[in-house]
């Protein structure tokens, strides 16, 4: 079971490595969206520092959302998804492997890059560790819920807009607690409560989403 999972992770990562530009896309998108806000609002430090946490989190939400396409689409198109579903392995293992790949490509780079973009938005330095940590706990939850959306729209044409309609409402609690944690850290308040809620959401997502995405993949396979 574990070897099946690692085999898929290795295969998908190798596929992504072949087109390194694809790996950089979510990251560039993230930086680009963040850069739009000073241009759209004002370059003033006092204003930007207040909204910095919200901007970084919203940009992270959108970046992980746009990367959801890589989860199942290519495998569905070339028929290998059907083969993987017929393998004598539980489907949720496949989902989990795909989610890990998605997070390694879209979530982890954002976590690593977030201090840089946050300081460009004048987020107080003492809030930076909290921002990184909240993203570290929050982005896997985004990938997990995103997997359900991506699994539901396999086989649907022009699914880009549809998937955001399905997934974004589910992202709202993560956004609220993530920005709440950073805001609390900026004011010097304790943040462990927020992070505990985010960790609880991650565990909860781990319990329900692989099952739901696996079911959705099997339903999508009926089409055709």
């Amino acid at each position: 079971m574990m070897s099946f999972m690692f085999a898929i992770i290795r295969r998908d990562l190798l596929l992504v490595m072949r087109y390194p530009a694809e790996m950089l896309n979510p990251l560039m998108f993230f930086v680009l969206v963040v850069a739009l806000f000073p241009l759209g609002i004002s370059p003033e430090a006092s204003l930007l520092s207040q909204v910095a946490a919200g901007i970084v989190w919203v940009a992270a939400l959108l970046a992980t959302l746009l990367a959801l396409d890589i989860l199942f689409k290519a495998d569905f198109a070339d028929g290998s998804l059907e083969q993987l579903l017929m393998a004598h392995q539980p489907t949720w293992i496949l989902v989990l492997a795909k989610v890990i790949v998605h997070w390694l490509i879209s979530g982890l780079p954002l976590v690593l890059l977030s201090p840089l973009v946050a300081s460009m938005l004048f987020l107080p330095a003492e809030a930076l560790p909290t921002l990184m940590f909240s993203l570290l706990v929050g982005t896997p939850t985004l990938s997990l819920f995103g997997a359900v959306g991506a699994a539901l729209v396999t086989g649907v044409k022009n699914a880009g807009m549809l998937i955001s309609l399905l997934v974004l409402p589910l992202y709202i609690p993560v956004l609220i607690f993530g920005t709440g944690a950073v805001a609390a850290a900026a004011q010097g308040l304790p943040v462990s409560g927020y992070l505990a809620y985010m960790a609880a959401m991650l565990i909860f997502a781990l319990m329900i989403t692989p099952w739901a995405a696996a079911m959705a993949l099997k339903v999508g396979q009926m089409q055709g």
């Binding site: 359900v148 539901l152 399905l166 589910l170 959705a216």
Partner: peptide
């Protein structure tokens, strides 16, 4: 599909 989405 909508049933799964509604449950989630």
């Amino acid at each position: 599909a909508t049933a799964i989405l509604a449950i989630i």
